[in-house]
Computed example of a mutant assay.
Amino acid sequence: MLKFKNKKLLISECASLLVERKLFEETKDEFGLVFFGTEGTKNPLSYENVEISKRGFCRADWDTVKYLREHIVGTEVEGDWVDGLVVALDFLRRESEGKKYTTLKIVLFSDLGCPANADQMDDIINGIKLLDNVDLTHIGPEWKDEDEEDEPNGMNGNNDEPKPGTSRGEAEKPRYTAKPRTKTQEINENVINQIIHQTEGTACSLGNMQ
């Protein structure tokens, strides 16, 4: 799940790294893409500004890596990550119906910077529990307290541009600078933490993404 807005480059680059890793590992894992904060709307639930990739579930390939790196366009639409999560759960249920998967996983990339509809929190928690084997992971910024001095998270400071590839052909993780939470981010962080706690999910920063 990807959010479209100011952090578009950084988030799409990190998402492409996850897909690229699947390629190098030569796994048979399948995945799908759900975008929120888009100008258009393409999902069975008709949630506004949420789009599901037309490819549905598929295995990792270089076309997907290229699409994430070169064709994701930022918008000024405020993306509701809760709406995106609801659509992703429905998408996961539809695509996995009648199939056997060891584990189902949702990875949410978002800085939680836009207002979200927290009224759906219980529905999300119940939906994850009903699917039984869903693992939710939130990947977001590295926060810092307001009284902390700015320190770059990595040798490249706040340069968010993609870095040259490694000897294996993998791109290095983008670097960024930790920033204080906004009030909206504090509220959203509390909501996502409640969801993660009640569903035994996980959370990590972009810099610590595995």
Rank of each mutant, 00 (worst) to 15 (best):
I72L: 15
F4M: 15
E70F: 02
A118K: 11
T184G: 06
T103K: 15
K183Y: 12
I72F: 10
S53M: 04
K28R: 09
K144L: 11
E97H: 06
P162E: 01
L112A: 08
E20V: 03
F57H: 13
E161L: 14
W143C: 13
T64R: 06
H138W: 07
V65Q: 09
G40M: 10
T202K: 14
G154A: 06
H138L: 11
S46V: 05
L68M: 03
G140Q: 09
P162T: 06
F57D: 13
W62K: 14
I106M: 06
D147I: 08
I128A: 11
T202L: 13
P180L: 03
L68I: 01
E51C: 12
N188K: 10
E48A: 09
S110K: 00
A15K: 03
G56F: 01
S16V: 02
K28C: 07
K100A: 08
I11Q: 10
N133G: 12
N153P: 08
E20P: 08
Q210A: 14
I125Y: 02
D132T: 08
P174H: 11
T177K: 11
E78P: 09
K100R: 10
A118Q: 14
G113L: 00
P180R: 03
V77A: 04
N158E: 09
P152L: 12
H71Y: 08
F24G: 14
